[in-house]
Design a protein around this nucleic acid. Sequence first.
DNA 1: TCGGTTTTGTTCTCGCGTTCACAAACTCCT
DNA 2: AGGAGTTTGTGAACGCGAGAACAAAACCGA
Lengths: 221, 221
Amino acid sequence: MTARTSPESARDIPEATVARLPVYLRALVTLSESGTVTCSSEELAVAAGVNSAKLRKDLSYLGSYGTRGVGYDVDYLRYQIAREIGVTQDWPVVIVGIGNLGQALANYSGFRSRGFRVVALLDANPDRHDEVVAGIDVRPFDHLEQIARDHAVAIGVIATPAVAAQDVADRMVACGITSILNFAPTVLNVPDQVDVRKVDLSIELQILAYHEQRKTHGAAG
Amino acid sequence: MTARTSPESARDIPEATVARLPVYLRALVTLSESGTVTCSSEELAVAAGVNSAKLRKDLSYLGSYGTRGVGYDVDYLRYQIAREIGVTQDWPVVIVGIGNLGQALANYSGFRSRGFRVVALLDANPDRHDEVVAGIDVRPFDHLEQIARDHAVAIGVIATPAVAAQDVADRMVACGITSILNFAPTVLNVPDQVDVRKVDLSIELQILAYHEQRKTHGAAG
DNA sequence: TCGGTTTTGTTCTCGCGTTCACAAACTCCT
DNA sequence: AGGAGTTTGTGAACGCGAGAACAAAACCGA
Ligand SMILES: NC(=O)c1ccc[n+]([C@@H]2O[C@H](COP(=O)([O-])OP(=O)(O)OC[C@H]3O[C@@H](n4cnc5c(N)ncnc54)[C@H](O)[C@@H]3O)[C@@H](O)[C@H]2O)c1
Ligand SMILES: NC(=O)c1ccc[n+]([C@@H]2O[C@H](COP(=O)([O-])OP(=O)(O)OC[C@H]3O[C@@H](n4cnc5c(N)ncnc54)[C@H](O)[C@@H]3O)[C@@H](O)[C@H]2O)c1
């Protein structure tokens, strides 16, 4: 079972590494836009805010794309990471729940530029169906099936209230969506083959509050 | 160095546990609201979407708040976790950058109900200063110092474009803010005693895309 | 051509987090 | 009272990830 590096793509990239690849990618884009042609692991690590040894180990899972004594070709590495993540192709995305947060997401230009294309905005509230957000019509939630089929949507975003989230997730799964980004503060039950990532702002604040309390309160008893 | 459980608060809670405590807290709130008085680690674990052994170990860091053969008193445990996290008190928060995302955050009611109070909305763009978002005036960014002092603000939220984020962070740190929640897709450099948590939606989508690519592409060579 | 310099790719070790498994502790029923 | 049943709290084993350290490989200059 020698861990031979395949020229096409590495077999098995650790989750922790997968989570950092987009950070490296963004750092590389910034470097590239500033005209940098080559960078060392140390430079890239600083730009990405990580340890350089960790960066090199992460990159080694993708293959051997650097040159010893020189460093990495910024554009080449950028392409390799983008290809590994899968953002060289465009991913159609649907957003469900076009309230405060859903509208902000729809208006966010950073998705498009990173390989994601919002193909539909869906909301259960008929009052919303008149609206146009970010140049896209808000459509009834019932259209999900047809849209998912027509555009081969694999990724869905849930920005509905928590109470509706499980329902929305079930419908998404039924439509063949296998990746869900969930902003509702609730635990989603989905089949094994479906990936769910949750973004929970309250939790983030609470984690900060915990540490903050420790700082000011003086942890000593 | 016997790890005796102090009645006041445990010495050292692992980061992974701290990150899950808010999840447990939310599950307990839901259970409490549904009238549940007592729950077992298994029930709570299911509600929180984790393994029950992990849940018990996590709770054991706080102290011994359960009863063997019975389970946990929902309201009691809820209070203990809230106290440990620090959300029994109110935390004043400032949001900087009242664009798409900042407005959504300001309008979000879930913060208030979880112990966070938005005391100010700040934006560098003078055009925004006429606006009132969620009943709060949008004020000039320069007011940060005074507001931070007056309200003893310890937690700041950054929702500005990436290019402005480091600047905003520096100003926050100078005002005594020691916890930052950053939505801008950039690495922030701050002193050691300052905690930064980042929420990066593009990264979440890219992680989903990676796995999605693996699913459809057929990982086998 | 060859030694010196630089930087990558990888090995090794350590610590943290997860999970299993079980003794201790509590309730309930007879 | 005492035994059966239940559930917590924790010791131990295991696997993964972080970081230090170093050998291999490239470049450069003489
Ligand atoms: N706004 C924020 O900054 C923020 C922050 C953290 C978490 N969240 C979470 O994100 C979610 C959305 O927040 P929001 O502030 O945008 O809420 P919102 O109430 O403004 O918007 C929710 C939208 O979902 C729609 N909806 C309701 N049920 C639906 C269903 N079954 N199918 C499709 N659409 C449905 C509603 O019509 C509404 O337009 C909530 O779960 C909230 O807890 C929001
Ligand atoms: N909108 C989203 O859904 C979304 C998603 C992911 C990430 N983000 C990130 O969140 C941030 C905000 O996104 P947005 O869509 O709200 O952008 P936006 O352009 O709508 O809003 C940014 C706001 O920040 C203000 N601002 C700019 N410089 C400032 C400064 N130095 N001090 C104070 N205020 C300043 C601007 O006046 C503007 O009101 C961006 O970094 C973006 O990449 C947004």
